[in-house]
Each structure stands twice: as structure tokens, then as C-alpha cells.
Design a protein around this nucleic acid. Structure first.
Length: 634
DNA sequence: GCAAGGTC
């Protein structure tokens, strides 16, 4: 027996090998610069077995069309929905694959140690087929672990399971659909639109099942802002000044959009303008500390508080991770494993000068409290947290490190404590209330200034008191327009709609900025370009039940992938059905491409140049049509 | 010249 273990990334291979070998391992270079091979002996049922632990760097293979369809003018784009596809080792990871095959030749068993999520299972499938191509008799097993803790890792090694081929199939289906849909629509859009509108200057007009819904969110919000009509509303304002302070009351009805109706209520009160205190309550109130930090939250918070672009935040976080300052920055987990020594990490942070005093107050003065437990656990990585004091950082890396560290210290602190006062009064039948807050212990707020909790004082009343208001007026106001989306808002919307994954939200935003569909204004709001608006409005005007600009198609695809994982459907069924669905939408879009051109023409303020001989794919007849575009007729 | 998903 000779076991080859393969992890999803070099860092994981190293960590797991160190645990399994209990420190006595030999590091050996392979054919790939970043992927080391770790050799050691492991005891299974009483005998020592030679083990090599190595890694890949994410996905190992890529899907593409065969050479016959790879050129843009080789076929009608609609043919890409059904043409053959070929899977091959990615150009940039040839050396990684070579290392795997070299090691697999000598092994009897292959243990898959990729992340325990759907993509990880898919990567496991790729490692399996590459390994079996040189060693068909290899026995393949799958290690299951929920964190990189010694006990878990040994348990996973001792009790391997089978690779879940349903999940592998689901990832293969996703890859194939993304390629077919993206390529067909990108070629269609670019060939048809970019030569007809001179201002587009032969720009690449890509379509992606994640790009377009993301663009759709930005455009929708822009249109909401544009179409906003301010409305006047009325309300009753009540204020009372006493010798021990002043209270401003809010009306229970908040506001009324009908002036006469509001006046009727106000006039009734004015008949006897005396306020009677119906209740005065004072109770302890807590402001909860934040949840442990996930990737999505890291991006949302750092874009909001530090005003950094999400893709920049991720590359900074990766740098901090590679320097050993913070834990792995891609995680969905917002709960810490109870076995983790969090107090030990806080103790290390005493060495970090700027937060030294706060950290030592947690460890020395018994201020330490275990973090709140969120609802998510990806069973691969803990929440993002600092792992060492970083005393030589500057600029944005320093700012991101300090955010992660403040957040972690906040999680290990106590909630903020206060005393809230609520006063309710009645003027005839109308209810009003005022509230006050006294902060008793700031606790986590001292290290986490991003949360605001402001104090307000109110005078003391007793139930049954009556008073004459100092100010009692009917006032008016105007509703204000909604704002454009920020990165914070957009990531939140993508996350809730299942567009992209935590690791890819930033990439999609970056991509649609690169494509000039949207731009980030100096004050960090996301606004669509005329091109972006034209595309989305064009598709929306086609009246498709499942618009290409909305998240529903992608959501439906996700649901289908889950069915593959549950065993309810096969990969072939799902690919066929989803291809048919998207193909129908594609054909409709081809039929109604004039609407797309009209919308784009309106937004770009330019007529499409119909004299440009572009090839208009008009039916699903495959690759037989001859391309008439300028490039091909030359 | 196309996608989205891993990760360096």
C-alpha cells in the first residue's frame, strides 16, 4: 500500500501533512514551483504505510470547444449550445498535473483532500481522472473533515469515504453550461452590436450568467433613482422642555401623505392640546457585538468602512494570509470551533502595539467572552481572524489587517450594555413616543468604532403626568430619492440572489467595470454606463418571461444542480434541459435583436449603422451559414 | 476576442 494524498491548495497540503506526520516529514520539490510533495509514514491498522501529500491549485482542467468552433467566425454562435466540448488540463497548470501523474504512478491509493464543498468535490473528480490516466488501477477515496484540527484530520485519514460522483457531475454540468451560454451570447452580442455602433469601437460585449444579473441590479437601482418623484408628507411634531431636559416625540403614525387628513387629526388634538403620559419604562438594553467574519462580510465592511474596491480587498487579504498574519480569507463560516484557542490568539495580539492595551484587558481582566455563533459553517475554514501580530505593515494592508483584528477582538468581547428609556404619551387619541439611551459599558465598541450607538437623554416623567407641549405643530417634509448602489449593497444583493460565490462576487463587479457596463464614481457609488443601460433595457423590452438580465435563470440553474446532487436528475438531463431553456431565450433574443439595437441606439444617442454587413444568425441551423462580416469577407 | 469556478 502506498497512499497519494492531494489537497486543493498548497497551504492545506502543508497543514494536513504536518498533522498526519506529527512533524516528521520530508519536503520534496516536484515539477510545480508552488506545489511541494511531503513524504512521511502513517500508521493504518497497526502498520506503517508510506504516504505522499501534495496539492493542486484549484481546478486542474478546463472546458473549451474543439478547434473547429474556437474561431469566432467558424460557426453560427447558436451551434455552441450543442457542439462538442473538450476537457483538457489548463495551460497554466500543466506542471501541476505533471506532478500529480508522476506521484500517482507509484501509488496504490489516491486520497482526495480538497475542500469539502461542491467545487472541491469537482476538483477531486479532476484529480481522479488525471491520476487514473497513468494508473487506472488506483483506488480512490475521499477524506472528510470540517476543520484543520489534529483530531479531525486523523479521523478523516482513518475513515475515508467515496468521492461523491453526483457532486462531481453537478460541477461538470455547471462548467459546461457556463461555457456554452457565455460563449454563444458573447459572440452574438459582440458580432451584432459592436460593429454597428461606431461608438462601441469594436468593443467586446460579453455576456455571462453572473455578469448580466449583476449589471441588472445596478441598472435597476439607477432607474429607480431616475424615476423617483419626491412626495410631500405631513406629520405632527411634539416637543417638550422641562427643567431636567428636553424630549422630542415621534408620532406613532409617522407620516401621512394627505394634507387634509393630517390636518383633521391635528385639529382634533388642538382642541385639547395636553399630553398625558401613559407609560414610562426603563430597561437594560444591549447592543450585540458583530458575528465572526466571513468573506462576504469582509468585502462588504472593508468597502464600506475603508472605501476599498472588493477585488482589491481580496488581493490584500490574500497577501496578509500568505505572510501569516491572518487566517484563510475565503470562508463562509461565521462560528468558531469550540476547540480553538481563541484566548491564546488574543494573548498574542498583546504584542500588537496599537491594540495591546485592549487585548490585555480581555485576557488579564477577564473581559474575554466567547464569540457569537452564526448560522453558517462551510466545514472547511474558520472565520477570518488574525493569527499573529503584524508590526511592520503600512497603507491598505495595514488598514485591512487592523479591520480584521478589531473585528476579532470585538467578537471576543462582551456586548455593549446600556439602559433604555421609553416614554409614551397621548394627546386626545394620538400616540407619541420618545426614547433615551444611557450607555453603561461600551465594551466591544471601544475596539470596533464601525458600530455606532449614540446616547440621548430624556427628562424623567411619571405615568399619569400631564404636560402642555412646548411645541405642537403640523409640519411637512419631502421624501428623498433612493441612492445608487455601493459595493456593500451590490455584494449583499448578489449573495441573497445566489449570483456567484463568496469568492467570485468581487470578480463579477470588476468584470462589468472592465467591460464598461458600469463605473465606480469618485464617491464610491456604482452607476451604469449608457452601454450598460442600453443592454439591460433592450433585453427587458423583449418581454421575455425569463429575462437574461434578471437573476432567475441563474437561480433555476442552481436548483437544477442541487437536483443532480440529490440524485433526482442526471447531469445529462440537466445540461440538456438548461441548454434548451437558454437556447430558447437566445433564439427569441436573436428574433428581437432590433429591440436591443433600438434601446442601445437611444442610450448611446446613435443610430445603428445597418449598412455594416454583419452576419445575423437568424435560426438554429448550426454552422452552415456563411459569415458576412467585414473580417470574414476580406 | 467568449463563462465561472477554483487559487498563487
Amino acid at each position: 500500500m502506498r497512499i497519494l494524498c492531494v489537497a486543493e491548495k498548497p497551504s492545506q497540503a502543508k497543514a494536513v501533512a504536518q498533522i498526519l506526520s506529527q512533524g516528521s516529514l520530508r519536503t520534496r520539490d516536484g515539477t510545480s514551483r508552488y506545489n511541494k510533495n511531503y513524504d512521511f509514514q502513517y500508521r493504518i491498522s497497526g502498520t506503517f504505510v508510506p504516504v505522499t501529500m501534495t496539492s493542486v491549485i484549484g481546478h486542474l482542467t478546463e472546458l473549451d470547444f474543439p478547434a473547429s468552433c474556437r474561431s469566432w467566425h467558424s460557426c453560427n454562435p447558436v451551434a455552441l449550445f450543442t457542439s462538442p466540448v473538450v476537457r483538457a488540463v489548463g495551460e497554466k497548470v500543466k506542471d501541476v498535473a505533471k506532478n500529480i501523474t508522476n506521484e500517482a504512478r507509484a501509488a496504490t491509493h489516491l486520497y482526495i483532500w480538497t475542500d469539502c464543498d461542491r467545487e472541491g468535490e469537482g476538483i477531486g473528480g479532476e484529480i481522479t481522472s488525471v491520476s487514473r490516466s497513468v494508473n487506472p488501477r488506483l483506488v480512490v477515496r475521499r477524506a472528510h473533515f470540517s476543520s484543520v484540527l489534529a483530531q479531525e484530520i486523523h479521523n478523516a485519514m482513518q475513515n475515508p469515504r467515496d468521492l461523491d460522483m453526483r457532486q462531481v457531475a453537478a460541477v461538470e454540468a455547471r462548467t459546461e453550461l457556463d461555457l456554452r451560454i457565455g460563449s454563444a451570447l458573447t459572440r452574438f452580442q459582440t458580432l451584432r452590436l459592436s460593429s454597428r455602433f461606431t461608438s462601441l469601437n469594436d468593443k467586446l460585449i460579453s455576456y455571462g450568467p453572473c455578469q448580466f444579473p449583476t449589471l441588472g441590479f445596478v441598472v435597476d437601482q439607477f432607474l429607480r433613482v431616475e424615476s423617483f418623484v419626491p412626495e410631500t408628507f405631513w406629520y405632527i411634531y411634539l416637543e417638550h422642555t422641562k427643567d431636567d431636559g428636553r424630549a422630542v416625540f415621534t408620532w406613532k403614525r409617522s407620516k401621512i401623505f394627505d394634507q387634509e387628513a393630517c390636518f383633521a387629526l391635528y385639529a382634533k388634538c388642538m382642541a385639547a392640546p395636553v399630553a398625558r403620559v401613559t407609560s414610562m419604562r426603563s430597561r437594560p438594553k444591549e447592543k450585540w457585538k458583530p458575528l465572526p467574519l466571513t468573506t462576504v462580510d469582509l468585502q462588504k465592511c472593508c468597502s464600506r468602512y475603508l472605501r476599498l474596491a472588493p477585488d482589491l480587498i481580496m488581493s490584500i487579504a490574500e497577501g496578509l494570509y500568505n505572510q501569516g498574519f491572518i487566517s484563510y480569507p475565503r470562508t463562509e463560516t461565521d462560528q468558531f470551533d469550540p476547540n480553538m484557542d481563541l484566548k491564546g490568539i488574543v494573548a498574542k495580539l498583546v504584542q500588537y502595539a496599537p491594540f495591546s492595551a485592549y487585548a490585555s484587558s480581555l485576557v488579564n481582566e477577564d473581559g474575554f467572552k466567547w464569540p457569537r455563533k452564526g448560522k453558517n459553517n462551510d466545514k472547511a475554514h474558520p472565520p477570518i481572524h488574525p493569527v499573529a501580530p503584524a508590526n511592520n505593515l503600512s497603507g491598505n494592508p495595514l488598514r485591512v489587517y487592523e479591520f480584521v483584528t478589531r473585528r476579532f477582538l470585538a467578537c471576543c468581547s462582551d456586548n455593549a450594555k446600556g439602559q433604555a428609556t421609553e416614554i409614551e404619551v397621548l394627546v386626545t387619541d394620538e400616540q407619541f413616543s420618545a426614547s433615551g439611551l444611557m450607555i453603561l459599558k461600551r465594551n466591544y465598541l471601544d475596539i470596533y468604532p464601525f458600530d455606532r450607538w449614540s446616547e440621548s437623554s430624556v427628562p424623567v416623567y411619571r405615568q399619569g403626568d400631564s404636560f402642555e407641549p412646548s411645541v405642537f405643530e403640523m409640519r411637512s417634509g419631502v421624501t428623498t430619492a433612493p441612492k445608487l448602489l455601493t459595493d456593500f449593497d451590490l455584494i449583499d444583493i448578489m449573495d441573497k440572489n445566489g449570483i456567484g460565490t463568496d469568492a467570485t462576487h468581487a470578480d463579477h463587479i470588476k468584470k462589468i467595470i472592465e467591460r464598461e457596463y458600469i463605473f465606480r464614481s469618485p464617491d464610491k457609488f456604482l452607476a451604469p454606463s449608457t452601454l450598460g443601460i442600453g443592454l439591460i433595457e433592450g433585453y427587458d423590452s423583449m418581454g421575455l418571461e425569463l429575462s437574461l438580465s434578471k437573476p432567475h435563470l441563474r437561480c433555476e440553474m442552481e436548483r437544477e444542480l442541487k437536483r443532480i446532487c440529490d440524485g433526482a436528475k442526471t447531469k445529462e438531463d440537466v445540461v440538456r434541459e438548461s441548454v434548451n431553456l437558454y437556447k430558447a431565450v437566445y433564439m427569441k433574443s436573436v428574433d428581437e435583436v432590433v429591440k436591443l439595437e433600438e434601446s442601445l441606439g437611444r442610450c448611446l444617442q446613435q443610430e445603428p449603422d445597418s449598412s455594416v454587413a454583419v452576419w445575423v444568425p437568424s435560426n438554429g441551423s448550426g454552422g452552415s451559414e456563411v459569415c458576412k462580416c467585414s473580417k470574414c469577407s476580406e
